[in-house]
């Protein structure tokens, strides 16, 4: 091999340097700021049990947000996730009525999630339809089926050991849900950042045609991500149903928008192609802390949504405004 006349180094920045200058670090500062502000604002904030309770604000949503992050990075979206929760929860509730036990309930919840994900995936990847419209449709369809089955009724009577998923604690103040959240976060971080599959997801999101021409099985990868999103909705359905102890067709209403907000706040580009799981994890904490902190100050939920909405727009707008007005 000839000696290169022009040496090209592997990297100019180490991955750590990249990370430090990134969106995630900025978001981390925001999270720490909110944490400190909260602890000054309310004497009840720095209490282990209160903080543990606060995690329930985001754990179920975040589980879905991780899969949604992969989906959005790959250039698609799934607005039917909350409706999948409703359908999966309804299926579990119906199973309870015929005496299915806890293991069977979990299996049913997860299977319904997977099936719904597969349905979305087939419509989008098999028929080549735009996912935003397809999942607006399936969102009405899935929740609509719950409404047909339940109307204005509710399913109750879940077995007592089923309560563990949403109400159980693994150790001291560490809830089962929080542990599950951490495990799922780790799994998704590994999938997205350390595997060939994750690399394919990024490639597809940046340039799906280019990825196809590079030998990536684009449709298959997208289909799998839809499956993962459906499965995560099933997992969240198990946790939420267990925590509430009942199923109404309006369960988790409007969650899809909060989940998308969480993903975008976490630095995932809504146009696809970039983002990270650590970012989404921090975004989940930020949203949880804001909700919890305002809750302690007796600020009603709807006002929190203003904060969340403003946060969503400003995290994207501020860097752009800064770039526009910065002296050249």
């Amino acid at each position: 091999m000839s000696t290169a006349s022009h040496f090209v180094p592997d990297r100019l920045q180490t991955p750590l340097e990249r990370r430090l200058k990134s969106w995630e670090s900025l978001l981390m500062l925001v999270a720490i700021g909110i944490f400190i502000a909260n602890s000054f604002a309310s004497p009840y904030f720095l209490n282990a049990w209160n903080l543990s309770d606060a995690t329930f604000n985001f754990t179920e949503k975040a589980m879905i947000a991780f899969a949604m992050a992969l989906l959005i990075i790959s250039g698609e979206i799934d607005l039917s996730v909350a409706a999948i929760i409703a359908l999966a929860s309804t299926a579990m509730g119906a199973a309870v009525q015929v005496g299915v036990g806890t293991p069977g309930l979990v299996l049913i919840g997860l299977s319904v999630g997977l099936l719904c994900g597969a349905f979305n995936g087939i419509l989008v990847t098999g028929l080549g339809l735009p996912s935003i419209v397809v999942t607006i449709g399936t969102m009405s369809l899935f929740r609509g089926i719950s409404f047909i089955i339940l109307g204005d009724q509710a399913y109750r009577g879940y077995p007592s050991d089923f309560a563990f998923f949403g109400q159980g604690y693994v150790w001291w103040v560490i809830s089962f849900e929080f542990v599950l959240f951490a495990i799922i976060a780790a799994i998704y971080a590994v999938i997205l950042h350390m595997t060939n599959f994750g690399r394919a997801v990024y490639a597809i999101g940046n340039n799906a045609t280019g990825a196809l021409f590079s030998g990536i099985r684009v449709a298959r990868v997208k289909f799998i991500v839809f499956l993962m999103t459906g499965l995560m909705s099933g997992v969240a359905a198990v946790c939420l149903t267990s925590r509430l102890g009942s199923t109404r067709p309006s369960i988790a209403f409007g969650w899809e928008l909060e989940i998308v907000t969480m993903v975008v706040l976490g630095g995932v580009s809504i146009l696809g192609g970039s983002g990270s799981i650590p970012g989404v994890v921090i975004a989940a904490f930020v949203m949880g802390l804001v909700t919890f902190g305002l809750g302690l100050l007796n600020v009603p939920g709807i006002v929190m949504s203003i904060v969340i909405g403003a946060l969503l727009i400003s995290v994207i707008a501020l860097p752009r405004l800064w770039a526009m007005w910065r002296p050249r």
Partner: peptide, 18 residues
């Protein structure tokens, strides 16, 4: 039952987009 409405419009959206 009016509870069918949501599922029907969902189905209609999917059929229309196809």
């Amino acid at each position: 039952s009016p509870f069918w409405q949501m599922a029907i419009s969902g189905g209609a959206i999917i059929i229309a987009v196809v």
